[in-house]
């Protein structure tokens, strides 16, 4: 998919979200759905399969998000899948949260952790990241058991890795 097309879809979704009162929630739901999609190859291939009728693919999206997201989010994701861009949901979602944060003069910080962070931890982490990078950030907490412990933060192309997984990997390489 061309970058212009992804960019266009992202701007369209942001326009819809900005028209709604819960625009930030819509962005977050779309982002989280893309993360779920990345963890399931079967679901990803199903939503990307052009041989499956678009109505069927839309029905799958609606069934998955029923009660889990706003109607606007369901409608937007359903629209993306019906347009045959199921394989580009992750790129579109990343572009959506990036453009959304950019519109608010912030950067997106993807935080990988085994456990969820409390609001206090998130605030102090945001402050620490601003201190380290000089950027205000919007954090996206991603629960990932593979990090084993600690945190991994990715802001655009910059990665700050403090996970137990990486420490053990360094230990293994040290031998």
């Amino acid at each position: 998919m061309s970058d212009e097309k992804i960019q266009g879809y992202a701007r369209a979704i942001l326009a819809v979200a900005s028209a709604e009162s819960n625009g930030a929630q819509i962005e977050d739901e779309i982002y989280r759905f893309s993360q779920v999609l990345q963890s399931s190859e079967e679901l990803k291939s199903t939503l990307s399969d052009a041989s499956i009728p678009s109505a069927r693919r839309q029905q799958i999206v609606e069934d998955l998000l029923d009660g889990q997201a706003t109607q606007t989010t369901v409608a937007l994701v359903s629209m993306i899948v019906a347009a045959g861009m199921g394989s580009d949901i992750k790129a579109i979602a990343d572009r959506v949260i990036g453009l959304g944060a950019e519109s608010r003069d912030k950067a997106v910080a993807e935080v990988y952790s085994v456990v969820d962070l409390s609001s206090d931890q998130q605030q102090r982490l945001a402050a620490a990241l601003k201190s380290a990078t000089g950027k205000d950030v919007e954090m996206k907490i991603i629960i990932d058991e593979s990090v084993m412990g600690g945190l991994l933060v990715q802001i655009e192309d910059e990665v700050i890795d403090g996970t137990v997984r990486t420490r053990l990997k360094q230990l293994r390489e040290a031998f």
Binding site: S113, V114, V115, L117, Q121, R124, L125, A127, A128, L129, S131, A132, M148, G149, G150, L151, V153, I160, G162, V164, L168
Partner: peptide, 22 residues
């Protein structure tokens, strides 16, 4: 490490990370 990574240890690791980044 896995045996000792309970909730308290996870919280301590997160705190250490925040403090180190800050």
């Amino acid at each position: 490490v896995e045996a000792n990574l309970d909730a308290e240890a996870q919280a301590r690791l997160i705190e250490n990370y925040i403090n180190q980044v800050g």
